[in-house]
Amino acid sequence: MKITKKAILYVIAAELFVFIILPSILLGIHGIFHEIPSPAVPKIFSNKTDTPKYIRVYRHTYGVTEVIPFEDYVKGVVAGEMPSNFEIEALKAQAVAARTYSLSKIIRSGDGGNPPAHPDAPLCDDTHCQVYRSVYDLTELKGEEWMNDSWKKICKAVDSTKGQLMYYNGQLAEQALFHSSSGGHTENSEDVFASAVPYLRSVDSPYEEGATHQKETKYFSTKDFLYLVNLKYPGKKLSSPINKIGIVSKSAGGRVEDIKINNSTFKGRELRDALGLSSANFNVSMKNGTITITSNGFGHGVGMSQYGANGMAKRGSNYKQILEHYYTGVKIY
């Protein structure tokens, strides 16, 4: 069979496509979803911080790092962290808090590297950073009806605050912490964490109607109580029997600072962790071998109370007023 010059050219063209062009195309597509270079660290200007277009987020659910548009990430955090039936102004407040918190972590990663838990990304998708849910995740979890209604509401809240951040004395408010409900008062940061942050002050949070974990009561036998506390803090060596238990001091926000059990003193947050309490805002009593603990609120109690924010929104406060209430002295722009 005679092979023409034209046929040879076809064969060469086919080989070029199969072995060079097609792999390059596929590699490019793979790169779009899996291996885009890390976005640049945002520039910090006087009284204003730039926001990136894209960020890297480690997805614990899938074990991969994804590159996500920053504002889309904020939408996924608002959907993951706050009930969608909350008032639109509360959702806006959550958007600004989430945007500020995540950006501060991105900036810090440029100085000291990403966290050991996710070394390829400054942020992850669970409570280690902030809960993030993608459109695909939310569709699977919530369904099409929720996406057509609640997702559009969240997108509206985020889009209406696009790029807005919280600042204190002209600097990004790096610790834009929030929690579900406070039980009536938020906490000074130093009463819960290591250091005092000027905008994380204890404030009243009176409008938390409908909040979960109000007057939540748990009962422990002294045997179970001893086991759980010693399991968490073996160095304390709490011994049986428990003859005396009482609160020594409370913080400005009403949470237990110190509690004495027999001759050992514990921090309120230590007992919260050991016993799985919803809050360190609790009272305790002991009778007939049973220890009763009643707590109010859910979370660490520092920064914005989400249910409190919703209560303020119901009473006519806008998102800036909500944020300026829970973060003392901040400005939003």
Rank of each mutant, 00 (worst) to 15 (best):
Lys2Leu: 08
Lys5Gly: 03
Lys5Phe: 06
Ala7Leu: 11
Leu9Gln: 13
Ala14Trp: 05
Val18Cys: 12
Phe19Arg: 08
Leu22Glu: 00
Leu22Asp: 00
Ile25Pro: 02
Leu26Thr: 07
Leu27Tyr: 14
Ile29Val: 13
His34Ala: 13
Glu35Gln: 15
Ile36Trp: 15
Ile36Asp: 12
Ala40Val: 14
Pro42Trp: 03
Phe45Arg: 15
Phe45Asn: 13
Asn47Thr: 08
Asn47Asp: 15
Lys48Met: 14
Thr51Pro: 14
Pro52Gly: 04
Tyr54His: 12
Ile55Ala: 15
Val57Gly: 11
Tyr58Trp: 09
Arg59Asn: 07
His60Gln: 09
Glu66Met: 07
Glu66Lys: 05
Tyr73His: 11
Lys75Glu: 05
Val77Ile: 14
Val78His: 03
Gly80Pro: 12
Asn85Pro: 01
Asn85Gly: 01
Ile88His: 12
Lys92Thr: 02
Ala93Trp: 01
Leu103Lys: 13
Leu103Thr: 12
Ile106Ser: 07
Ser109Gly: 05
Asn114Lys: 04
Asn114Met: 05
Asn114Phe: 06
Pro115Glu: 04
His118Lys: 05
Pro119Asn: 07
Asp120His: 15
Cys124Asp: 15
Asp126Phe: 02
Cys129Pro: 09
Gln130Asn: 11
Gln130Val: 11
Ser134Ala: 05
Glu140Leu: 11
Glu144Ala: 13
Glu145Ile: 14
Asn148Leu: 10
Asn148Ile: 01
Asp149Val: 11
Asp149Ala: 08
Ile154Glu: 01
Lys162Met: 08
Asn169Ala: 15
Gly170Glu: 13
Ala173Ile: 07
Ala173Trp: 04
Gln175Arg: 09
Ser180Pro: 02
Gly184Asp: 15
Thr186Leu: 13
Glu187Tyr: 10
Asn188Ile: 09
Asp191Met: 05
Phe193Lys: 04
Ala196Ile: 00
Val197Asn: 03
Pro198His: 11
Leu200Ala: 03
Arg201Cys: 02
Pro206Asn: 06
Tyr207Gln: 03
Gly210Ile: 09
Gly210His: 06
Gly210Met: 04
Gln214Trp: 09
Glu216Trp: 09
Thr217Ser: 12
Tyr219Thr: 00
Ser221Cys: 04
Thr222Gln: 02
Phe225His: 06
Leu226Ile: 06
Tyr227Pro: 00
Leu228Arg: 09
Leu231His: 02
Leu238Met: 07
Leu238Glu: 06
Ile242Trp: 00
Ile242Asn: 00
Gly246Ile: 12
Ile247Cys: 12
Ile247Asp: 14
Ser251Asn: 09
Ala252Phe: 01
Gly254Ala: 03
Val256Tyr: 01
Ile261Phe: 13
Ile261Asn: 11
Asn262Tyr: 10
Asn263Cys: 07
Thr265Asn: 07
Thr265Ala: 04
Phe266Gln: 14
Arg269Gly: 10
Arg269Asn: 15
Ala274Trp: 07
Ala274Lys: 05
Leu275Thr: 11
Leu275His: 12
Gly276Met: 08
Ser279Asn: 09
Ser279Leu: 08
Ala280Trp: 01
Phe282Pro: 00
Asn283Val: 04
Ser285Phe: 03
Met286Asp: 01
Gly289Val: 00
Thr292Arg: 14
Thr292Asp: 02
Ile293Val: 10
Ile293Asp: 14
Ser295Leu: 10
Ser295Asp: 08
Gly301Met: 09
Val302Ile: 10
Gly303Arg: 12
Ala309Val: 11
Asn310Ser: 08
Met312Ile: 13
Ala313Cys: 05
Ala313Arg: 10
Arg315Tyr: 06
Ser317Ala: 14
Tyr319Trp: 14
His325Ile: 10
Tyr327Gln: 05
Tyr327Gly: 08
Lys331Phe: 10
